[in-house]
Nucleic acid binder design. Structure first.
Lengths: 219, 219
DNA sequence: AATATTATTGACCGATCGGTCAGAACAATC
DNA sequence: GATTGTTCTGACCGATCGGTCAATAATATT
């Protein structure tokens, strides 16, 4: 096997795997792990069912792989904040980043939500390990901001959960939002309006002076 | 059938139906409509599978019945607000009521969430009908509050969604919250702290002067 | 006591589940 | 062109799916 053909083969394999992962993400996110069937995933990917198993091994392996892919997308968020950071800037970015991630990977977000609803059987370890550390360390920094008088003395954990829930809501409850607003998908104007609202309420609610308004390219 | 025996029979029937509904709510809320099996529900209820179908007719009928029961619990929320109401009092109550409802009916809340995640196949009509009207009418009142200068000029729809998401989060993501906090269930002190936080941030964030602090019995 | 009604459930139905496997089809190496 | 290795997939497996049904048991009505 030459380097050329190896690359070609791998590229072909990658393309097929991406097709399967994308199809599986849709089905799993809608119906959860148990509710999803390999046949439904195969239909979505327009491949024979046996082909799915040939590439992914098993239903569980496919599911875990999707979870890991989604988790890895979150690694960069709020990675480099310090006690000296500007709370307004950081929280603004946090809100916008989470909002963009949700809009960019709606199926991944819903997949995560379904996993949590089922009691997080495959993510228990991650939640009580990595994610707990993530929250603890960020909470410590936010507490320092409060002590420095940069913001009100609120419980940082509840603040993080608030931003999580508020942003996640618009992807996971998209069916509800659409039904209520009467729009099939949120327009860019809606998204901008929502970001603006969340920043206004959360920053003001935490007693943070807003950083000078900059024109954000949030999508 | 005498009146006495009729009551007795109906009481017996009611008790069995409640057992089934409760068991089904647990299973459906964890695994969604497709992921739930009648056998799992029967095991949970400690009844033969055929008995479930004898009382409920079909899987779909059982599911729809659960959805309706959950929806009916929400009917009273924010029912009697007017342009003259005090925003601080109303939003405070809204936050606490939603928080209590989520804690009181965690399985029902999760059931609803799973239905929305699946694309709301059984609730599309409700969302774009009753619920849309509910939101529209409340939004109109909130807008009047803004015009009267009682609060900032924020989009009332985003405000309603914010309160929904923030409160719902603690029931639907209970597995995540537990994992991160390292507590199996939220303590009463945690709940009080969360309510306090949400009121502080949301009211202040909307420019609403807080109503004099009253000792609330929120659970 | 006899009869009618309702409640209960094991056995079974066709369909679908996740997963296996043998062999066809295809491509790379010699 | 023969050989080797990889990709692909129809056919099949036992288990489970939602649902039916006939029988039995229990209860009401007469």
């Amino acid at each position: 096997m030459t380097a050329d053909t190896a690359n070609q083969e791998n590229a072909s394999r990658d393309r097929i795997e991406q097709t399967i992962l994308s199809a599986a993400e849709q089905v799993f996110s809608q119906h959860g792990y148990r509710g999803a069937s390999l046949q439904a995933i195969a239909d979505q990917a327009k491949l024979p069912k046996a082909n799915i198993l040939y590439y992914m091994g098993s239903k569980q392996a496919l599911y875990v792989r999707l979870l890991n892919r989604m988790m890895s997308r979150w690694n960069a968020v709020l990675e480099d904040i310090t006690a000296e950071s500007d709370p307004g800037q950081v929280l603004s970015d946090f809100i916008r980043t989470k909002m963009v991630l949700g809009q960019r990977y709606p199926e991944g977000s819903k997949l995560f939500a379904a996993e949590i609803l089922a009691g997080a059987p495959f993510l228990k370890e991650y939640l009580s390990g990595e994610l707990k550390e993530w929250v603890t360390s960020r909470a410590a920094i936010i507490r320092q901001w409060s002590q420095q008088g940069k913001m009100d003395d609120v419980d940082p954990r509840w603040l993080i959960f608030l931003i999580w829930s508020a942003t996640q809501h618009y992807t996971e409850y998209s069916a509800q939002i659409s039904g209520i607003l009467g729009e099939e998908v949120l327009s860019d104007a809606d998204l901008a309006s929502i970001c603006e609202f969340l920043e206004h309420v959360i920053l003001k609610g935490c007693g943070i002076a807003r950083t000078p308004p900059v024109a954000h390219a949030y999508l």
